[in-house]
Design a protein around this nucleic acid. Structure first.
Lengths: 247, 247
DNA sequence: GTGCTGGCTTGACCGAAATCAGGGCTTCGG
DNA sequence: CCGAAGCCCTGATTTCGGTCAAGCCAGCAC
């Protein structure tokens, strides 16, 4: 379902009007004319949980904006051990620029909607618009910051701290509404217990045990296995291990 | 010791002539004229092991090219637990663009020589030269790949696999000479046992034990605690845990 | 020389998390 | 209806790596 109905009188493509990527995502780098040309090449997809987006060691033919849902980036050892090395939320840009092969797998963790572009279109637009490359650069720097934060969690935190840190991270990315340390925050976990364990370097049993512990201690409530309410984010924070960057 | 002796007849600043960053580093993005103006702002430093380059939560006033030595990037929890989140080798660019505060510490692991520029000079030059930003972007993407590789090691590998993976990584970054799976490779470890443990999410005792085990098994030889010889890189690889990206 | 410090190694012991096992609940398809 | 498959929870047991402790050695100050 190709988009791009090249209407000359419309300065911005119809489908881009309500698109989050148009504002906070990478498409915000493009002027109306560029956006029209770019939108001619895009396609929209919906992918169900578990669907593969990018296979490890496969050539990459397209890039995408993530419009809704959560994507998990994974790496797998040959004996099956798996590590989730990143989570992406809308309006993130998906794909590794400047490399023909991906070194990681990308998979839909929840239902996901994408706006995809052919590889060549992104590369052409990037040459044309330094601002586009600039936005991708900034996103990459943020991903690097996140990756390094996760490294501390993986290498130096205990199981209880890991699970608390995960909930805090998800809460901050998924919650809708005001952000307050003392207001109740609730959200749906985008991952199963097994996936959380692959994110934190634990087993699903340990994740389950730590979640029940947080529940019986009154830090969180859980409904239907997935819906989490955090009454006090600050109590959750206390369980994350001393914050990085004291002072 | 400011450099930049603005000699009009010299198309390339004297000190840049023999500089690795001029070729494979970020300065390769600049034309001679830009390089002359840029070099006027640079200073060279030598820093001894343990010297701090960037403090966590401190404002960043300068960026640098790493000319020689190894820099470790660390994050610390408030109770003192530490994680090394990256190692940098020449001719890497040091510093986090677009943020006034660093979220990590950078410290000299070995003796280090730097070519430093004021923050403003880098930002000005980046606006002027998209190619400079492009190179920084590419380095950042490589750092992200490295970070994600390390995440697999931290989250899913055993202690013996972690230590083997570390030696393999260092061997590939520090060795001089031909790269062959069967030729002996030797190098000096740039980190102490305690630092290696902070890199791998282990204790110094465990690192020591695993190194001993690799030694008695004949995979490596160690002289003076620091100098390592790997007779067969392929035997070392076998101990790293199944490779990521089978096929 | 002596003593001190810091890095490294090794051993004994312990504990946090993995492993193994069982059972409950929901969903889905016959 | 039944049964199978997934996901989740919990208990019992094991084990890997952490903790504690001791000792060696090289470098350095005095």
């Amino acid at each position: 379902m190709t988009v791009g109905q090249n209407i000359h009188s419309s300065p911005i493509p119809v489908l881009c009007h309500s698109c989050e990527a148009r504002h906070s995502g990478v498409c915000g780098a493009l002027d109306p004319d560029q956006l029209v040309r770019f939108a001619e090449t895009t396609t929209r997809h919906k992918i169900e949980p578990g669907g593969a987006l990018i296979g490890d060691a496969e050539p990459v033919y397209s890039y995408s904006n993530l419009l809704s849902g959560v994507v998990k980036l994974t790496k797998t050892l040959s004996d099956g051990r798996q590590q989730i090395v990143g989570l992406q939320f809308s309006p993130d840009f998906l794909g590794r620029p400047f490399k023909l092969e991906s070194a990681i797998n990308a998979e839909a963790a929840t239902s996901v909607t994408l706006c995809s572009f052919p590889r060549a279109a992104v590369e052409r637009m990037m040459k044309e618009s330094p601002e586009l490359e600039h936005r991708l650069f900034k996103q990459t720097l943020n991903e690097l910051d996140d990756a390094r934060e996760l490294m501390v969690t993986l290498g130096r935190k205990t199981a209880p701290e890991k699970v608390a840190s995960f909930l805090l991270m998800i809460g901050r990315n998924m919650h809708s509404g005001v952000d307050s340390a003392e207001r109740p925050t609730c959200f749906d976990l985008p991952l199963t217990r097994a996936e959380i364990s692959d994110f934190l370097g634990l087993t699903n049993e340990t994740v389950s045990r730590q979640l029940t512990r947080l529940r019986v201690d009154g830090v969180i409530r859980i409904e239907n296995k997935r819906h989490v309410t955090v009454d006090s984010m600050s109590r959750l924070e206390q369980r994350c291990g001393g914050r990085v960057a004291p002072l």
